[in-house]
């Protein structure tokens, strides 16, 4: 009965993941391996970026004064738009994780505040390969070299995510593994300021246990995958800490604004 319960939970979380996220690893891999009917438009310099802005991300850069700003600020703005969309997807996903909506509302907020960026960077790896990153719902591909060529501090924004992604992708997780991993990131009992820690720890324990069993059956040849993934949770926390510091620096020194939802998340984070 317990095993059946765990399988049901894994299935519910996987279904919620497929339903709520616009992009997932299997979709991204089809595009990145050249098997999509239309290949993504490659952004690798200023000209191709301008073209992409007119077509792929016209909604993000048009009619808000952003089109006259410098290239780094425009890209940063697009990153923010994508982040906001992903936070809303993650919120809906979290609400579908059994037990989450029964938590104290302030604890739900705390779990999202601290979990969304870790989850986002874990999922971002699915859209990356060593040469670049899928953007605009998989319709574009921006090269790692082009992102690196931007001026500082913007050039430092994505490179740590590529480095994390290359190691993370080597674990060869599929979407069913990632769904449970993302749920484990969000339902984390040691976020600062949680009121009902015991309640969340119980939920976390159940999800982590299901993740361990799922990895055992889905990756029988990699006995150390579970401990490797637990280490990735720590790596993601470090990645987010550094990202938050970089965003604070950009906010202080650059002529750019931060979306109110992202401001809420970053404020008093670490």
């Amino acid at each position: 009965a317990q095993l059946a319960d765990q399988k049901t939970l894994a299935k519910q979380i996987y279904e919620a993941y497929l339903k709520n996220f616009n992009m997932n690893k299997s979709k991204a891999r089809v595009i990145l391996t050249g098997k999509a009917s239309t290949p993504p438009f490659v952004i690798h310099d200023m000209d191709t970026l301008r073209l992409a802005e007119k077509t792929l991300v016209a909604k993000m850069v048009g009619n808000n004064g952003i089109q006259n700003k410098e290239v780094e600020v425009r890209i940063f703005h697009c990153c923010q738009c994508t982040s906001v969309e992903t936070v809303t997807e993650l919120t809906e996903f979290a609400k579908s994780v059994p037990g989450f909506v029964g938590l104290d509302l302030n604890d739900q907020v705390t779990l999202l505040k601290y979990g969304v960026y870790e989850a986002m960077f874990a999922m971002l790896a699915s859209s990356m390969n060593k040469d670049g990153l899928l953007v605009a719902y998989g319709n574009g591909f921006i090269t790692r070299e082009f992102l690196k060529s931007l001026r500082k501090p913007f050039s430092d924004m994505m490179e740590p995510k590529f480095e994390f992604a290359m190691k993370f992708n080597a674990l060869e997780l599929d979407d069913s593994d990632l769904a449970l991993f993302v749920a484990a990131i969000i339902c984390c009992g040691d976020r600062p300021g949680l009121v009902n820690v015991g309640h969340i720890e119980k939920m976390q324990e159940r999800i982590v246990q299901v993740l361990r069993l799922h990895l055992q059956s889905n990756h029988p040849d990699d006995a150390f995958l579970f401990p490797k993934l637990l280490q990735k949770l720590a790596d993601l926390r470090q990645l987010v800490t550094e990202h938050a510091q970089l965003v604070q620096e950009i906010k202080k020194t650059e002529d750019t604004s931060l979306h109110p939802l992202l401001q809420e998340i970053y404020r008093d984070m670490y």
Partner: peptide, 20 residues
Amino acid sequence: KEKHKILHRLLQNSSSPVDL
């Protein structure tokens, strides 16, 4: 609660989109 009003709103009402 005031500090995280958009997150609160997203949690309580899924049909309210966030402006980009």
